[in-house]
Each structure stands twice: as C-alpha cells, then as structure tokens.
Design a protein around this nucleic acid. Structure first.
Lengths: 223, 223
DNA sequence: GCCATATAGTGTAATATTAACACTAATTAA
DNA sequence: TTAATTAGTGTTAATATTACACTATATGGC
C-alpha cells in the first residue's frame, strides 16, 4: 500500500451516486435527475457527484442529494463501488453507490447540475447515463433481499404508522399480497416495532393504532 | 456529476484491501502482511495497494494479493468502501475492501511491499495499521451472515470434498456444533452440491463419498 | 339516530419445517 | 480376527408457517 509509482499518474476521480427509492401511488418510485451538462447532457441519471476534500463518503452522498434535489436527512446505506475503467467517457471515475430510502416523497427541486429531478416509476424507466442502469438493478435486488431479513421497510414510513401501512410497504416492495393476520403476528413478534398510545383517525372507518420503530437504526434479524 | 471544481484539488488515491480467510488446524485464519514501508512500517496490515490505470477494482485486488503474497485465483467479493478523510496519514486514500476465501491455505510468500505474510488466527490478532481492524470486523460479520443464506462456505473447500469436511466448515465459521444427519439433509436438499463417483479413501476407516459444487458461482438462497 | 360503508383487529386448525436422537457400515492397522 | 475410526442413514417430537372469516369501530349520508 506504500508503492511510490502511484504518484506517476493522476488518481481517478471519486463520485457517489444515490439510488433513492420511495413509495407513492401504490408503487415503488426512483429519483432521477436530468443532466444539465456533458457528458450525457439531457440524459436521465442518478443524483450524485464528486467527493470533496475532507468529506466522508456518505456525507458526499447526502450533500449531492441535497444540492441536486433538495432532499435531506434520509436513510442511506452503501451499496457497491463501481470502477470499470471505461465507465465514464471523460476520465477514470470510481463511484460509490448508495441505496437510500425515504418516506412520503417530497417533491424534489432540481438544482446544481440537474435541470430536472423527478420520481420515476420503476416499471417505466428511461434510458440512463453511464452504468446507472446496472447500479439501479443491483439496488433493487438488495432492497428486495433485505426486506425479509432486516427492518429496512420501516425506512419507507414516517415516525408513526399503522400496521396496514407497513403491510402495504412489504406488498409493494415484494410484489406479493400478504395475509393480514399472519403479517401482524410476524411483524409484532420480531420486536422491531411497538405500539403508541395514538390512533390514526382521519377516515370514515375504524381508526387504526399507530406504531413506531423500537429504534431508528437498521436491525438485521437473520436467525 | 459534472461539476468543474473537482479539478481544483488533487483526487484522493484509491486502493483495495483484501481480507482473506481460510480454514486450517480447525480454525479460521486471516492473511496479514508486515509492512515494509512507512506509514506503519513494521505493523501488520491487510494485503492491498493502489489501483492502477485501466485496471478494474477486483483486478487490482487480485494483483495486489498476488504481488504481496503469491496467492492467486481465489474467490473475491466486494465488501465495503472505506473513505474517512483521515484514515491514511499520508494523503487522502479511499479503499475498496474485498472479502476473499480460499481452500487449503497455501503458504504465502511475502514480496513487494510486504516483508512478511502469514496466516493469523482470528482469536489472536496483532495491532493493525490504518482502520484495518474495522475492515476485518466487518468481513467477519459478513462471512458469518452469508454462511446461512448462500453457498459461500464451498469457497473454503477444494473442487471435491466430503460432507464431513463441509460440515466442519460450517461449524468453524459459525462457532457451533451441528447435527450430522440434519446437516446432510439440509445441504443436500439445497441443490448446491452433487455427488461424484469418487470416494476419499486415505484413512483407516470407511471411505467417504466426494461431492462437488453444482456450479462454482456463488448462490444466494434467501427464500 | 340509524344505516351503509370501509378499514381495523383478532384465533385456530392444518401443514411444513426444524430439531433431537442412536445405531449400522466400511475401511485400516495391529 | 479384532479394535479403532469415521461414514452413513430414519423417525418422532417440537416449532414455525400457512390458510382462512368474522366482529369492531369509526365516518358520512339519509
């Protein structure tokens, strides 16, 4: 790790790219920006950008997301690092991809390098810049597999939520209907959510109890 | 992603670090090298080094491992990327960590930056350079959790192996004794290994049937 | 006030999976 | 031939998972 020859050529650039999922209108949505600059000007791409000095990797992801779309304080986890030599036509760029989830989708506001920022339905993605289609495919796979051995689904919901809302998250992400009673038994026996004293009473039917996450962190429960 | 200001400061250096596990003498072992150069000269560290131009990330990991320890053609998967600004005292270095597993441990041969390369027992690790202790902790956690939802354990064994040998891998990595009959039922019903026509007949007892992996790739079986 | 509508909330029986457990088989070495 | 050593095999009990239907409680309209 202390070779000297690494000074003899320029280091690759480092970026982060963020795959932000949310749920709205009964479906999984993905945040894309329209690029305002070359390369791939006018193409859709993941939000992201160059690492700054004295900035941690996840800080960079948070900052780029905020700058390009106005979104902040969202759940982030590192997904994978992409570094094929030819993945960026300008110069060598190694990109650390993040998986991000957010509750009720705020309307993003395009800024910085982005001329547009919108939530795209996953069934209907446009052509994508760079290797971003690969990054998104991996993110979907990761999200799906974590659904059943972690508490990641809670990241799609606000601080309090009903069991029906949580079930809907599992159904949308997992693309399958679930049995209400079995779902409730399972999720409550996992110890990751707890009852609150409050009810959601905003509709013309019986109000539902509100629950909250036992801790806001991400819990893995592989047995 | 097309900010211009990123040219106004030098890019961070990029390295790979490789956490190589193997099993020998009934325990899990980890490959460490003794650093021949500053910083941390004389300290133990993970094998790894700087990314070269036109080299993919996993190629870099393979190459560094070969250069520093003589080991090659081993199973590699990306673990996580570490990029805290102060993790390297020389300059900013972002490192992509790899998890690697190998069957019967060849004796490593120190070369390149390494003045020694040996298999360390995990119960008994020395002080480590950089943030390598964190990387190793994460690698152990990943290995343990993948044991039960993937076929990763096969990477510790040669092309053919007996069921007892495979069981021993699970026992060592998982630190728990397993029931022989239950283990055999489970592993054979997963469809990741198949019988060969050969037996291992080298000891003073009944010979054991040899099995092989159905495919050499890594299979995930989250249901 | 009463009824229609809509979602919340609950238990049990059948099925499938996992866990616990002990003996016989085949080889080598003495 | 016998002792030693590991290979290989099935059944039962316990546990976890699945399938399934009705009652409860609010609102809104009449």
């Amino acid at each position: 790790m202390s070779k000297e020859y690494h000074y003899s050529y320029p280091h690759p650039a480092i970026t982060t790219d963020i795959v932000v999922f949310t749920i709205s209108d009964g479906g999984l949505k993905l945040l894309l920006i329209k690029r305002g600059q070359e390369p791939y000007q006018g193409s859709w791409a993941l939000p992201g950008g160059f690492l700054e000095p004295n900035e941690g990797l996840s800080e960079c992801a948070q900052r780029e997301l905020r700058e390009e779309t106005g979104l902040k304080d969202i759940y982030l986890e590192q997904l994978c690092t992409f570094g094929e030599p030819e993945r960026d036509p300008r110069e060598r760029v190694v990109s650390i991809a993040y998986l991000a989830l957010m509750p009720t989708p705020e309307q993003p506001e395009a800024a910085s390098d982005a001329v547009a920022a919108i939530w795209y339905s996953l069934d209907d993605l446009p052509a994508l810049a760079f290797d971003h289609a690969d990054i998104i495919a991996l993110a979907r796979k990761r999200l799906l597999s974590k659904l059943n051995y972690s508490s990641i689904a809670l990241q799609f919901l606000p601080d309090t939520f009903t069991l029906s809302e949580l079930q809907k998250v599992y159904e949308i992400v997992g693309s399958e209907q679930l049995d209400k009673r079995n779902f409730r038994k399972q999720i409550t026996s996992m110890g990751v959510i707890e009852e609150t004293d409050n009810l959601r009473r905003n509709a013309s039917h019986r109000p539902a109890r509100l629950y909250r996450a036992v801790c806001r962190d991400h819990v893995q429960f592989i047995k």
